[in-house]
Design a protein around this nucleic acid. Structure first.
Length: 217
DNA sequence: GATAAGATCATCT
DNA sequence: GATGATCTTATCA
């Protein structure tokens, strides 16, 4: 099967373009011998130091340091004390910007005896993670009938077991987490542009249509 | 179906 | 000491 790892130059571009081009690409998470392959269906762009919704607009701190670095690195932070959010750093070194991965559609692992499943419309069957210490708090075995893409980045990270141990990971060379192009073609008409979530404090930036949603067909 | 409240902590003031 | 790129559960209608 065609699968091309995304290179550093893919992320070394304007953030909004990276956010758009990430739709239909795949996030690959490897945990031991287990591989989770998830097609990206929703992203948000955080465009540089002037974007008041971006953590980097408050300046360079220990937390935001990685956003100022070279593109292609992971920025993972804790939100509301209980959830993690996964971002990938974009643009040239020195220009703090990132794309938040909000939602994915999960694909069946090759040769898996388990059914294909999704995040966004259905929650996964917890049998996918038989050897994991990971706690599936409050998860029923299958099928929450959620609205498309209502899942959110917190739940995504829980399923992919992404936490702060992956902060600053170089996703171009990492063997734990990376991006792939698997030949899925996205037409412009499949992409919906809406305001970002939870950024009411961001002044004139709060209404920017920098949240990109892939319409599932 | 809609809305509200509660959980819980790194980060910044 | 206040806050938030969230999600679940409870309590309404």
């Amino acid at each position: 099967m065609f699968a091309q790892k995304l290179s550093r130059s893919f992320f070394n571009r304007p953030t909004l373009r990276v956010a758009r081009d990430l739709l239909g690409k795949f996030l690959v998470r490897k945990i031991g011998r287990k591989v989770i392959i998830a097609m990206i269906t929703e992203t948000e762009a955080y465009c540089g130091p002037n974007d008041l919704a971006s953590h980097a607009s408050r300046g360079r701190t220990a937390r935001t340091e990685v956003m100022f670095g070279p593109p292609g690195h992971a920025y993972v932070y804790l939100i509301y004390g209980m959830y993690h959010c996964l971002n990938v750093v974009t643009e040239r070194e020195g220009c703090p910007a990132a794309v938040l991965i909000r939602s994915c559609e999960l694909k069946q692992q090759p040769n898996s005896k388990f059914p294909a499943y999704r995040i966004g419309r259905q929650l996964t069957n917890s049998r996918q993670f038989p050897n994991s210490k990971f706690q599936f708090r409050n998860l029923k075995p299958i099928t929450y009938n959620l609205k498309p893409n209502s899942s959110g980045p917190g739940k995504l990270c829980r399923h992919l077991q992404v936490d702060r141990s992956l902060n600053k990971e170089d996703l171009i060379i990492s063997r734990r987490l990376w991006f792939e192009d698997r030949g899925v073609q996205i037409k412009p008409g499949q992409i919906k542009r809406v305001p970002r979530v939870g950024v009411d404090y961001a002044g004139k930036y709060k209404n920017k249509l920098w949240r990109l949603v892939l319409k599932l067909v």
